[in-house]
Nucleic acid binder design. Sequence first.
DNA 1: CTGAAAGCGCTTACAG
DNA 2: CTGAAAGCGCTTACAG
Lengths: 338, 338
Amino acid sequence: MSKRPTIADIASQAGVSTGAVSYALNGRPGVSAATRDRILAIAKEIGWHPSVAARSMAGSRVNAVGLILARPARVLGMEPFFMQFISGVESVLSANRTALLLQLVPDHDAADEAVRFWWAERRIDGVLVMDLWADDQRPALLAELGVPAVIVGRPRKGLDLPAVWSDDAAAIDSVVDYLVTIGHRRIARVAGLPSLEHTQIRTAAFQAAAERHKLDSAPVVSTDYTWEEGAQATRRLLTSADRPTAITYDNDLMAVAALSVAHELSISVPDQLSIVAGDDSQLCLVQHPSITALARDIVDYGARTAQAMLDLVADGRTGVHQTPTATLIPRASTAAAP
Amino acid sequence: MSKRPTIADIASQAGVSTGAVSYALNGRPGVSAATRDRILAIAKEIGWHPSVAARSMAGSRVNAVGLILARPARVLGMEPFFMQFISGVESVLSANRTALLLQLVPDHDAADEAVRFWWAERRIDGVLVMDLWADDQRPALLAELGVPAVIVGRPRKGLDLPAVWSDDAAAIDSVVDYLVTIGHRRIARVAGLPSLEHTQIRTAAFQAAAERHKLDSAPVVSTDYTWEEGAQATRRLLTSADRPTAITYDNDLMAVAALSVAHELSISVPDQLSIVAGDDSQLCLVQHPSITALARDIVDYGARTAQAMLDLVADGRTGVHQTPTATLIPRASTAAAP
DNA sequence: CTGAAAGCGCTTACAG
DNA sequence: CTGAAAGCGCTTACAG
């Protein structure tokens, strides 16, 4: 509870003005090298840390970045993606002494309101925007408010926001190509939330690939990512007239649920049905059969996103960063078509 | 990008001093009801939001709470617990216009350093401390620094920190009682990280229950919560001379891995082996057989923790809050002993 | 290269 | 019940 050291303390010890201390501490011109070294030594010795509040008030950055997630808790909890992504974000932010403000909100309106508040209260230097949906208002809102933002997803036309993305369409192509190569002609897709932009990108890619390969059937069913809807979609597909011989899923929990449904219907995996998960996690490995999945380095994805954010707020650098495309890891849940 | 309104703007519009505005806005005595209403109306009309930085500098709270998680990303990602807990925390914090700072760190030293920085920079009003380990230095460090903190776990002796906890020992008792009731005499426990306090509490409870029921065997194996170690522990137990007829796990991922191992060893679940998961999530439902698990309302647990934090920083209220004990949900993975 | 001073937007004793 | 003023800890033109 002892009083925190301030630049005034450093200034008096060093026998200079607080202005000089500020220049020295921030590595700006205006002090001699000798003075700078002396100031830095004193700052370190007395354990000085900048007050974010004071810096913020003086108009400088607050060294904090916001991340708002608009998904229900039970879905977030079951998607290892988010924690891994956050972990990657954190690794870069904390190395740069920048805090992460996290907010989980129930819907889009709450997400917008959260950004407005954070910005109005000057809590953040910028926000990371993920899970974009079609006609998402957020990029426009952020531009209007003047909030620096990094888009996690496909770059927006007309807005000069930096974006970090991964080629989902190419990943989907690789899955369809693989299944076709081992003889499948009836392939289904169990998609995530249809309102999300990346769901739409994947569905479009899936349909284009089906067209290209002239598949016999290529139905798409939408879900909310929960195992219930994944299981229900699978049940519907497997009891339909034109039963698919392979199904791809937009996450791994639904692929696991599919294993259960196949078991329940006495359909053998992979002999009679091949299953592919759209995300890879330990879950896919623990099943029997283990599940073929699209894998990518999500921690790295988060780290790149955080770096793009820092580049943006530190020196206004924008740009589009493409991260490696997910690669297919074949496991025991896929085999030649029956 | 237009200039944000300040209390000076409100003051000039209302024809009063900024001091009066401050009193009115904070609901403190010093202004007449009429003036207060006028001020509040103007504030609302011009879209005023307090500057957290200014409030912080003036010595008031910053309306932010920190949460530091010291587990590897791949473990965090596979534990639905954390996101659900965070979601509960968030629901209470955001209703009180309080931000959550989240930091994921690799180890205990990094966790300590993170608290020091946050506090030194005046970024937070307090921290939530979870995953306490035996001889955890954090409560002492926090007391020394004077950081308000809420312990998620067993209350600490000698330190007057509020704690929110759940009776893990009673939950373990209920599991052992249940298994004994259906005839099991050789019950094993696959525990999480042995350094964590709640692991130790559970192990002690397990051993006491084994003693009480005079079990034939009650081995305990420690793991790091990953499916690899869970599978390895299971393999070791199932190939030992005194093979258990029931195994309880400290999370659900390991219980799922156990299903795989049993399958690999041609041991039928639940006929020859009963399996109980220490956490409940959708994962337990999606398996076949579905997994018997200890369930509790984790979102509520997070919410209560956040409330305890607000009570502490708002009016210094401390105290111990016990949350409901986890209850056993019997499913298809447990049956009478062979 | 350095010093003195204003200003960021609040809160809070202290007078009136 | 209200006003005037100091202070929180920085940054940044502006003089010297």
